[in-house]
């Protein structure tokens, strides 16, 4: 069984995220990291591969060249191979353009199953899978908290506003997992060492047969018009617990007359 996992490089959690007022794009100049929610998807792929005894896990991503550093984390966890769509013409892509490029790259791979993470921490969209599934004309199940594979079909359990759904779909299919589905493994030292020598392919728009007009800003149908500050929220106070954390909370609550 061949499983593709779509993963993204996002600004590291310690980085201050900002939109560059000049380009009106997310400032990606700081440290990057593998989107933490995507580690759940990689983990689930590795478990399915282990359970079926054979197969391949390939991570697929669209991003700048240096995103390979973040993809290596997925390889260190155990994924077999990485494919990165890196092209200057892809920068500034919105959902429509990104889903097109990813779908093209996935078509080349022909996986039995395509996994997505819960959301990217820099866009909070939680939408990309449905667009990719539509382009590939495959069934999609999102927010999956429990996934089982049986013969040629899979079953996902997921939460909605009204309770739990159990949805079944034949393979090939697209599944977006919830962060509750598993606890991602930490890469072992051996895994980290081995990651460097695993196949890592960079592909361009031309390689995928995507024309420039369908990618990047030109291929995007949304635009950023202006940026502004959100309304201020009252003071936020952050303290380090030095052993007196509980006392300080009590003092704060007393000051606010909450106890």
């Amino acid at each position: 069984m061949k499983i593709a996992v779509c993963v993204k490089e996002v600004p590291d959690a310690t980085a201050h995220k900002r939109i560059d007022p000049g380009t009106k794009r997310l400032d990606r100049s700081g440290e990057g990291a593998l989107n933490a929610f995507d580690a759940n998807a990689v983990e689930e792929a590795l478990r399915l591969k282990d359970a079926t005894g054979d197969g391949e896990v390939v991570v697929v991503s669209m991003g700048p060249e240096r995103a390979l550093n973040s993809l290596r984390k997925a390889l260190a966890m155990g994924a077999d191979r990485a494919v990165l769509i890196a092209d200057d013409g892809a920068a500034g892509s919105d959902l429509v353009a990104t889903s097109l490029m990813l779908a093209k790259a996935l078509e080349r791979e022909q996986p039995d199953l395509i996994l997505f993470g819960q959301q990217s921490s820099d866009s909070d969209g939680a939408v990309l899978w449905a667009a990719v599934a539509e382009r590939l004309k495959q069934p999609v199940i999102s927010q999956v908290a429990e996934l089982t594979l049986e013969g040629g079909s899979l079953t996902g359990k997921r939460q909605t506003e009204f309770g739990y759904d159990v949805i079944r779909a034949p393979l090939p299919a697209v599944v977006a997992v919830a962060d509750s589905i598993n606890e991602p493994r930490y890469p072992s030292l051996k895994g980290i060492m081995g990651a460097k020598s695993k196949p890592q392919e960079t592909v361009s728009l031309a390689d995928l047969g995507v024309d420039a007009g369908s990618a990047g800003e030109e291929g995007s149908h949304t635009q950023v018009l202006a940026l502004s500050d959100p309304p201020p929220r009252g003071d936020t106070r952050k303290i380090e617990d030095d052993g007196s954390g509980a006392e300080q909370i009590v003092a704060f609550l007393a000051e606010k007359r909450l106890i």
């Binding site: 919105d94 429509v96 939408v127 899978w129 449905a130 539509e134 927010q143 997921r158 949304t222």
Partner: peptide, 23 residues
Amino acid sequence: QSILAADIAAGLAARLDAGLNWQ
């Protein structure tokens, strides 16, 4: 926004090559 609506909106965007703004 809902679990259902988000998946329809994104699928529709791809089907129609239309811009989707969220949040």
